[in-house]
Design a protein around this nucleic acid. Sequence first.
DNA 1: CCTTGACCTCAAGTTAGGTTGAGCTCGTAG
DNA 2: CTACGAGCTCAACCTAACTTGAGGTCAAGG
Lengths: 154, 154
Amino acid sequence: MPARVEKTISIGTLSDRTGVAVSALRYYETQNLLFPERNSGGQRRFLRADIRRVSFILIAQTFGFSIAQIKEQLDRLPQGRTPTKRDWSRISTHFKSHLDEKIAALESMRDKLDGCIGCGCLSLQSCALYNPADKAATKGTGPRYLMGDRSQDI
Amino acid sequence: MPARVEKTISIGTLSDRTGVAVSALRYYETQNLLFPERNSGGQRRFLRADIRRVSFILIAQTFGFSIAQIKEQLDRLPQGRTPTKRDWSRISTHFKSHLDEKIAALESMRDKLDGCIGCGCLSLQSCALYNPADKAATKGTGPRYLMGDRSQDI
DNA sequence: CCTTGACCTCAAGTTAGGTTGAGCTCGTAG
DNA sequence: CTACGAGCTCAACCTAACTTGAGGTCAAGG
């Protein structure tokens, strides 16, 4: 007889199935990415659909999205029923556009760098790299603005 | 008479000229990105060439490089003399290749996502997104690996 | 000379995304 | 029934890249 298929899974099983540490899964719950129920003993019980949900989190992270951004995407999934492939497909499309933006921003920077390599400026006020608009492509706190040399410097 | 041009500049001046906070400049020194001398009173004295150096740090950060990676690049600059445009140009070329790699990795992921959108899988073992090799494109700790559903799941 | 703003050091705080450890409870195999 | 692995909570710790604060010094103008 095959082991019977449980309706819900434990945190350990979800960890095994996704490769995500138990501590990370609990952390995701605190960040409202997962909403496990509890059994009578207070232990978390996840749905099988949560395996896909966690996989989405993993993939989105490899694409450079923050937990907060991933939560926004997951919030678009239907409440109260297991998401269908169509639902997942819809939000994949949504984050593909973010990805396209990121790539475009990086390419724009690369092109500017191409232009700058020849002159070796890298810090001149007139340098194309002096463009705060592109900063959106990066994450983290980062620098606030750039300012270059004036004529007599260096 | 024009104000005389000082040979070295104070940390406040460097901060004004680059837009980088004084505290950040001191931090960069602890990370060995800057090597100011000290005057008799113990105050830091930077070279004008450090304006360009700091600008390089800012630009490299917008490209997503870490302080450690930026230090590696700066270490390639000649010791003992003010870097020339040629020197800067050389290291710009060097980091352009890193940038190209990043873009290529992101594009590769986007292409896989394109393939996945139709099926809505996003977590299947056979999914092209299940590819640890692409992780190199991301930074931070991130997930360790992906594992998807098996047939009867969900 | 005195004031004031710019500098100094060192320690601690911040955010993101978790991990680790202590101390205790659950639940299942034998 | 009892052991013991799996779970639980809560607090503390970790890295990166800085910022903030406390408490003290330097230097230039009046």
